[in-house]
Each structure stands twice: as C-alpha cells, then as structure tokens.
C-alpha cells in the first residue's frame, strides 16, 4: 500500500510540475536568444550553460516518469546502470563545473568533470565491472551535485549575482528530494517549491541583492 502511495505521489507531483519546468526552459531559451551582443555577435555563454543544466536536469526526471507510466512501477536505483537518467544527472554536474570554471576563469577546470565522467564510462566499458561503475557514478553525481551547489552559493554571494544564487537555490531542492527519496512528502514539498519558484526565477523577477545605484557620470554619458 505504501509503495502504491509512493508511486502515485511521485508520478502525479512530477507530471504536475512538468508544465512549469517546460515553461521555464522556454523562458531560459528566449533569454539566451535575446542575449546576443550586437558588438561581438555572440550570445551570453552563462545563459547557455544555465539553460543546458536545466535541460539536463529535466531529462533526468523525464526517464523515471516515462518508466513509471509504461511499466506502472517505480524504477530501480538509476546509478546501478548506464541509463538516460544517470547520464543526464552526470551532465548536470559536468555543466555546473563548467559554469563555475567559466565564471571564475579557471580554464583547467572547464572540461575536467566531462573528462572524468568519460573516464568512468570507458572504465566500465573495458572492465565490465558494474560494482565499481556504480560507486564511481554515484560518488561523482553525489559529490559533484553537493560541491557545485555549494560553490554556486559562494559564487552568487561573492559576486552578488542573482542568476547564480537563484540557480544554487534551484539545484538545492533536488538534492534535498534526492537525499530523502524514500519520503514522498518531502518530494511533493520540494517539487511544489520548484514549480512556484522556477517561473519568477527564470523571468528575472527574484532579486536577492540591491541593484547598484547608477553613477551620475555614467547616466550623463548614456544621455
């Protein structure tokens, strides 16, 4: 009975939040498209990375949802095998590390997480050792998620950046729901919060820091 409740609670919550997430992705895509710099002819790479990270996160919840709908049961732990969901979560971590490397100008970290995950997959392909693969994949995603989210908080506060701090709060919620995956109530609260928080965040309505006052000289120069 408990399993049935767990199944329906998660399925209905996820399906209910999906339109919100799709709307968020649409908003983020629009913002990225509008970020074209007419002088350089390039778009804002930070916006692209934020969009990609949320796309990967969305694909990570898509696979278990489809599985629940098709097989009418909860999927097993996704870290045991190489599946679309585990790959998506690893990509969320890797994109997060790339974003942090980009913001902090640490070129050597730019592709580090991508290479590491490629190494994990190659190691599994050559050794066919699923136990080690499970440990590596689980460790990478767990440590990676907690680390990049922590650094998002630090970076957001340090640079007084609403985008990064907002993203830190956004990804903090799936970490909590993932940590208490056996508790459907926490899952409902977390995804409910994401649905409420996501839209104003992507529309840029949430401001954590006061806007810097415009200097008089700058205002004059702008005419």
């Amino acid at each position: 009975m408990a399993a049935d409740f767990y199944y329906y609670a998660i399925l209905i919550t996820t399906l209910a939040t999906m339109p919100t997430i799709i709307f968020m992705l649409f908003q983020l895509g629009k913002k990225y498209r509008d970020s074209l710099n007419p002088e350089t002819g390039k778009r804002d790479p930070v916006r692209l990375l934020v969009l990609l990270q949320i796309v990967f996160w969305f694909s990570s919840i898509l696979y278990p949802t489809v599985y629940r709908l098709v097989f009418l049961e909860n999927p097993a732990s996704m870290f045991n095998t190489l599946n679309p969901s585990s790959i998506s979560i690893a990509f969320v971590v890797a994109t997060g590390v790339t974003l942090l490397a980009f913001v902090h100008h640490k070129e050597s970290w730019m592709y580090a997480a991508w290479f590491f995950y490629a190494g994990v997959i190659l190691y599994m392909v050559f050794t066919m050792d699923s136990t080690t693969f499970y440990m590596l994949q689980f460790g990478f995603t767990l440590v990676g998620q907690v680390s990049f989210d922590l650094f998002y908080f630090i970076t957001g506060i340090k640079y007084k950046d609403d985008k990064i701090l907002g993203l830190a709060i956004f990804f903090f919620v799936p970490i909590i729901s993932g940590a208490s995956s056996s508790n459907p109530f926490i899952y409902i609260i977390c995804y409910g919060f994401l649905a409420i928080y996501g839209i104003p965040y992507t529309m840029g309505k949430i401001k954590f820091f006061k806007q810097k006052p415009v200097q008089l000289v700058e205002a004059e120069a702008r005419g």
Binding site: E107, Y111, F115
Partner: peptide, 27 residues
Amino acid sequence: KYKFYSIPFILIFFISLSLYQYADITA
C-alpha cells in the same frame, strides 16, 4: 592547452584504480 590540464590527473586516477583492481597491466 590549459583546458586539458585535468587529463593527466584523471588518467592517474583511473590507471591506479585499474592496477588496484586487476593484475593486468595492458591499459
């Protein structure tokens, strides 16, 4: 190639892991 600096460290990790787990030294 500053963006590839992590490769040697990642190779050290995986080769050490393979040597720790297996007697084979092909990799």
